[in-house]
């Protein structure tokens, strides 16, 4: 891309020749910094976990309290990511396709869960959905308790996951070719058929990517959940909180095991997202 290849290029080289200077110092610094801040600390976790052996990990991971926490974390995260996929798609659709007053304000607000510190979101959500709060107060007479139950965790995870779906779907939707929709309509499809058979299938990779991103964020989320969850063991205790509890009890082994399980899931998700995007590039020619 940069310099013209010489007449007899070697069949393999570590780096394509370039006229620009500064490759070695910048790459060297980046690698050193990456190793010190990210790779070595994560390596310490992996090393610690491997010291326990598969049996040791299995034993801790299937102990009743840990299993319950992992189940709560994954179950509620799945539900929240699913809801976010539906409403995130809807919000992305409305923001890209329609013009209405305050659209830009709404568009900017979608990023609020990224920008608002999780602890702030946590206490605020707890105040709103508590039995004496703005919405909790409306639901209390109906016998619905949100805050301090798994439903509270769900509300917090919907909050943190929403921008992932919207921001993944939005650019794809904006780039979508309107002519395919016109073709579909001119071939006699109703608007509903066009949307469900032509538009949605080509949005599917973006929706799945958004789902995976929202799910990954939800599983690891801590700050916004602990204030609203109630944190009852076996009922509304999430895995990240159990790591903190184990650390406070100096149970480093327990904390390490839960963390490794969560790290493994994070890697799997990263792999899944990459596979979805590769598949989408092959099938649709865009991400």
């Amino acid at each position: 891309m940069s310099a013209a290849a010489p007449a007899r290029a070697p069949w393999f080289r570590l780096r394509q020749p370039s006229a620009l200077p500064g490759f070695c110092p910048t790459l060297g610094f980046a690698l050193l910094y990456l190793s010190l801040i990210v790779l070595i600390p994560l390596g310490a976790l992996v090393l610690r976990a491997s010291g326990l052996g598969l049996d040791g990990i299995w034993q801790v991971a299937t102990s009743p309290r840990v299993r319950a926490a992992l189940e709560v974390s994954f179950g509620v995260s799945l539900a929240a990511a699913a809801v976010n996929s539906v409403f995130g798609l809807l919000v992305a659709w409305v923001l890209t396709r329609y013009r209405f007053p305050a659209r830009r304000l709404l568009d900017a607000m979608v990023d609020l869960p990224f920008a608002l510190p999780t602890a702030v979101a946590g206490i605020s959500l707890a105040a709103i959905w508590a039995p004496n709060g703005w919405i909790g107060g409306l639901l209390a007479p109906l016998g619905i308790k949100v805050a301090f139950t798994p439903l509270g965790i769900f509300v917090a995870l919907v909050f943190v996951g929403l921008p992932f779906v919207v921001r993944t779907v939005q650019p794809v939707l904006a780039d979508l070719d309107r002519e395919t929709e016109e073709a579909s309509a001119s071939l006699g499809a109703t608007r509903r058929q066009t949307v469900f058979r032509v538009v949605l299938p080509s949005l599917l990779p973006a929706i799945l990517t958004g789902f995976a991103l929202a799910f990954g964020r939800a599983v690891g989320e801590y700050g916004s959940v602990i204030f609203i969850a109630g944190n009852l063991p076996f009922r509304s205790e999430i895995a990240p909180l159990l790591i903190v509890i184990k650390l406070e009890e100096f149970d480093y082994q327990g904390a390490t095991v839960i963390a490794s399980v969560m790290l493994a899931i994070a890697f799997l998700l990263l792999l899944t997202i990459n596979l979805i995007q590769a598949w989408s590039r092959r099938r649709f020619g865009h991400v």
Partner: peptide, 14 residues
Amino acid sequence: SVSPVVSGLVFVLL
């Protein structure tokens, strides 16, 4: 993609 709690934990382990 790493949970914030895990990000803190790795430094405690180190």
